[in-house]
Every structure is written in structure tokens, then in C-alpha cells.
Design a protein around this nucleic acid. Sequence first.
DNA 1: GGCTCCCGTCCATCTCAGTTGACGGACAGC
DNA 2: GCTGTCCGTCAACTGAGATGGACGGGAGCC
Lengths: 140, 140
Amino acid sequence: MTGPGDGSLARRIDHLFKAVQPKGREYSYEEVARGCEALTVGTFSKTYVWQLRTGQRDNPTKRHLEALAAFFGVPVSYFFDDQVVDDVNSQLALAAALRDADVRDIALRALYMDDATRRSLARIVNEISTMQRGTKSAES
Amino acid sequence: MTGPGDGSLARRIDHLFKAVQPKGREYSYEEVARGCEALTVGTFSKTYVWQLRTGQRDNPTKRHLEALAAFFGVPVSYFFDDQVVDDVNSQLALAAALRDADVRDIALRALYMDDATRRSLARIVNEISTMQRGTKSAES
DNA sequence: GGCTCCCGTCCATCTCAGTTGACGGACAGC
DNA sequence: GCTGTCCGTCAACTGAGATGGACGGGAGCC
């Protein structure tokens, strides 16, 4: 496997940057830092995020690991457990695929589907919008 | 569960001391420290183990968390788990919804869709099948 | 072009995580 | 009783973890 699971902490963080792009772009280091600060007590500098991603620092504290995991929406064990990496990665990849596809458009076309299929799609779209937490509003 | 997951890091480490007693008594701080040093690279002082257990220090680094987890034979996520579960809940819920929906059926109906939508759905289905390959019933 | 704003990168700095060393108490052997 | 040793506890120091600010560069705007 050439995923982030085979390497260092830096690889995994790098993968999170690439996989989690609710704005269609990678988060900037400052966005991540401020987001982490918002989610946990304590400070988080953009420089340190950069150092972690590039492998210049590889031994962060518990607090920083928790903040990063919360920000990217992955369990903290993502940074430790290879199996969790695989599980999460597949879900992140799915989320990425769903983002690229215009889900609302698909939902519209679902009007021409039969009942069962449409309900299934509706549930999926619903979960997606929940997952995105209003970053792309105007759903409901 | 009223296990060690209801409190601070200190509570969880204290629980490990009490629960893991292969010699019939609690490990001494020095035993833990030396054991951790043996299992990982780097140093680990008995005083620091004591500080962590008593809550005087509560922000250890990744390296120390890995060492402690290895010594006591628990996954590193033991020190985190419950705290981040709700952050990934949305993704887990999505996975559940996708399991219930008959995705292959949806893909078949995609034949009647236009090109762009069908390609989007193809990517989604591809990710789903990838995700389902390694699925083990992690259901409670 | 010139200006501004934001990004990633680098460097100087400081804070605090983690170690070292020492003190008092408990238990065993002499 | 006395000594030696191992334990838990404490205070002080060291250095790595982490931060703040500065520099260069690219994109958008007038």
C-alpha cells in the first residue's frame, strides 16, 4: 500500500490535508491552526502544523494530537493504528468522491427513480449534508 | 461503561497500574519507566510516570503515549477513544446508510443517467465497494 | 506597473515537557 | 539497634516542543 499508513506521522497528516477539503482546496496551515485552537483549549501555531506535516517535528503532545484529530474529523488513533488508517482512509476517499460529484444534482435526478432507490439516495444525501456540517448550506 | 474512560488521562493510567499486575502487585514507577524504555527508543523517567499517574502532568508526547500503551499492552487509543467518537459519528452514520442502501442496484439504474452523473456515481460505488471489502461487523 | 493581501517557509525565542538528583520513610538482614 | 536498599515524593534544572515574527513570492485589484 502506498497510503499514509505505511509511514510516519507526517505522511498521515499530509494525507489528511489532501483528503479533507470541504472548501475544494486544501486547508491552509493557518486555517488548521486556528481551527484546532477553536476546538480545544490552548494554542496551536501554523508553523507547528507545517513542521508536523513536513516531518520536521514528529513528537507532538497529547493535546495537539487531539486537536488535529478533532479538526480533521478522524479518531486520534488514526495517528497510531494502521488499521484505523485504512478504515478512515476509505471513508475519506468516499467523502472526496461524493464532494466531486454534484450530490444535489444526483438527488434531483432521483425524482425519476423508483421509490426504494430514491429513498436510499435520500438517506445518503442526508448523511452527507450532516457530515459536512453546513459548510455547503442551503440543503434541507 | 464505568471503566477508565470516564475521566482524565491520570485516571486511565491509574487504572492500568491497578489492572495490570502480572507479579501480583502493582508495578513500581521505576519498573514502568524502564519497561517503556526497553520497548521504545528514548528515555522515560520514573518521576514522570508518577507525575502522569497523579495528574501533575497531563500532556505527554506521542512517543511517551506509545511507550506506555506498549508496556501495558493496550492500544494507544485507550488514552483517547471516547473523546473523539462523536466527531466521526457522522462518517460512521454515512457508512451505515450506505450499507443499508442497495448500492449495486443504484449503480444499475445509473445506466439511464447522463454521462457526468453516471461517472460520479461510478466513483462513489467504487469507493463503497472498496470500503465494504474489509468490513467486519464492528457493531455493538 | 504598483499595491495589497495571504500563503508557505525560515529563524529567533520562550515555554513547558521531561529528566536529574536528593530527601524521608518502610522493610529486611545483620 | 543499626545499616543498606528500594520505594514514592519533591524541587530544580535541561532541552526539546512549540510559538511569534519576519522574509520572499504569487494572486487578485485598482
